[in-house]
Amino acid sequence: MSSDLYREQLLDHYHNPENFGVLDNADVDIEMDNPTCGDMIHLTARLDSAGRVAEVMFEGQGCVISMASASMFTEHVKGKTVQEIAAMSLTEIEQMMGGVKLSMGRVKCALLPLNAMKQGLKESGGAR
C-alpha cells in the first residue's frame, strides 16, 4: 500500500464521479454493500438490443477505491456483452484504474462495482 494509490486520477473520480445517479427503465438495478467497511453501491444499467451494455449509472458511498472504481467502471463496461463482463477479473479492474496494485484489504472495495454488475445481470436474466 502506498500513497500513490491516492494519485490525482483516482481522487478526481472520487470527487467528481462520472455517471453518478440512477437510470430510469433500467435492465439492471442492484444495490450491493461491502459489509466489512460499509461501502455501498446502487448500480443501474440499460442493455441495447444486441445485449451489450448501453448505459450505466451508479450512486453510493464508500472509500476512494470503491467510488473511483465505480466511476471508471461505468465508462469501461459500455459496449461489453454479458459474457465479457462475466469474464472480467481483478487484473482488468486494476488496469482500468491506471495500473494500481491493490493490497488484499482493498481488493473487495475495487471489485464492488464489478461484482454488483455481475450479480445484477444474473438477477435480470442476463439480457432482455
Binding site: Y6, G62, V64
Partner: peptide, 25 residues
C-alpha cells in the same frame, strides 16, 4: 473521507489504526 482511506494513508506514515465497524455494527 472514508475510514479505509484514512487508515491507508496513515499506513504510509507507519501509523497503524483500524478502519471499519470494529465488530460493532
Amino acid at each position: 473521507i472514508h475510514p479505509h482511506d484514512i487508515s491507508a494513508i496513515l499506513d504510509t506514515e507507519a501509523v497503524c489504526v483500524r478502519a471499519g465497524h470494529h465488530c460493532a455494527q
